[in-house]
């Protein structure tokens, strides 16, 4: 048993699980802000890809990962603004608008990557430095998992509490949820539904853009076409599986990335003949089960997906 544990190395397993869950949690919380205010966001994938690309591109030309980080967040907000304008002001179907952004992100990142970055030979901007939190990082087990990380992971851990606080403990959060459940009633109570939705959609872009920076500026220090590889949809699954709450999304993301890590270790260390593909299906199958109402029904905000028309 001890031999099994040492081979599995639980501390490093948990540590890598937390790290790979980082973009999932951030994008899931972005989707949550958006959907809590009544706007569906299937554009998380495209927003993350844009953030990864712009973040890397700006970091590349300014030689600063921090300016790149800011650019990733701003670019996420900008492309989310397009989602907001289309779906809130122009009343475009929110699924269509999200889909358009996903296609657009592939196009923009593909075209400009090929033109400006693909053949660049200078040294890249590198990645965010590892920061050990004084004292705390020396705690056994907990220290290496939580307090020896890079910027985006720390930011994710803090933002879980920030987003939870905003959604459930502030007036803004109450207004947001009102707009997502019953926009007409919210409007009657004097809330500007359009404004609340705009702000939340743009905030979701900031969160997903930050999640995008994880891929290019934290994980590998480079950009590759389509490097988000569908993680935006796993984030969507984590948001639903976590029942539209930050802590739930965090737990779901850990479950999803953890099953990935355990699976690859079982194969590489113990040669257990479980095909990786079946483990890979876990997030998707669990989400289908949850939206179908088994295991405690996941109920989306009542007004999500319905364009709101004043009047």
């Amino acid at each position: 048993m001890t031999d099994f544990l040492s081979q599995l190395d639980p501390v490093s397993l948990l540590s890598i699980t937390l790290i790979t869950a980082t973009p999932l949690v951030l994008a899931a919380m972005g989707g949550m802000m958006c959907e809590r205010s009544g706007v569906v966001n299937i554009a998380l994938e495209g927003i993350m890809l844009t953030g990864a690309f712009i973040g890397y591109g700006v970091a590349f030309f300014t030689h600063s990962v921090w300016i790149g980080l800011a650019a990733a967040i701003v670019s996420g907000m900008l492309i989310a603004t397009l989602h907001a304008v289309l779906s809130i002001s122009f009343l475009v179907d929110q699924i269509v608008s999200g889909m358009v952004i996903n296609i657009l992100a592939v196009g923009i990142t593909g075209v400009f990557y090929r033109t400006y970055l693909e053949s660049a030979t200078t040294v890249g901007p590198g990645t965010f430095p590892h920061w050990d939190v004084p004292v705390l990082s020396a705690i056994p087990v907990i220290g290496p998992i939580f307090f020896q990380n890079q910027f985006v992971t720390y930011a994710m851990l803090i933002l879980i509490f920030v987003v939870h606080f905003i959604l459930f403990r502030t007036v803004w959060g109450l207004r947001t949820r009102a707009c997502g459940e019953h926009p007409r009633a919210a409007e009657t109570a004097g809330i500007n539904v359009y404004f609340v939705r705009y702000v939340n959609v743009i905030a979701s872009g900031a969160l997903a853009g930050l999640g995008g920076a994880y891929f290019s500026l934290q994980q590998i220090g480079n950009f590759l076409p389509n490097m988000t590889g569908g993680r935006g949809y796993i984030a969507l699954a984590a948001m639903i599986f976590g029942k539209w709450t930050p802590l739930g999304a965090f737990a779901a993301s850990l479950l999803f990335s953890g099953s990935d890590q355990v699976g690859s270790r079982l194969q590489s260390v113990f040669h257990v003949p479980i095909p990786l593909q079946f483990l890979g299906m876990i997030p998707y199958v669990l989400t289908i089960i949850v939206v179908a109402g088994a295991m405690g029904r996941a109920v989306a905000p009542a007004a999500v997906g319905i364009p709101y028309k004043k009047g």
């Binding site: 475009v92 269509v96 657009l104 196009g107 075209v111 033109t115 076409p225």
Partner: peptide
């Protein structure tokens, strides 16, 4: 032209924006 073939994604996405939002 060395323009990435991904350009057509930009064209397609824009077309859909204009189709879905005839107001624009």
């Amino acid at each position: 032209t060395q323009i990435s073939s991904d350009l057509i994604s930009i064209v397609q996405a824009s077309v859909i924006i204009f189709v879905a939002a005839p107001v624009i």
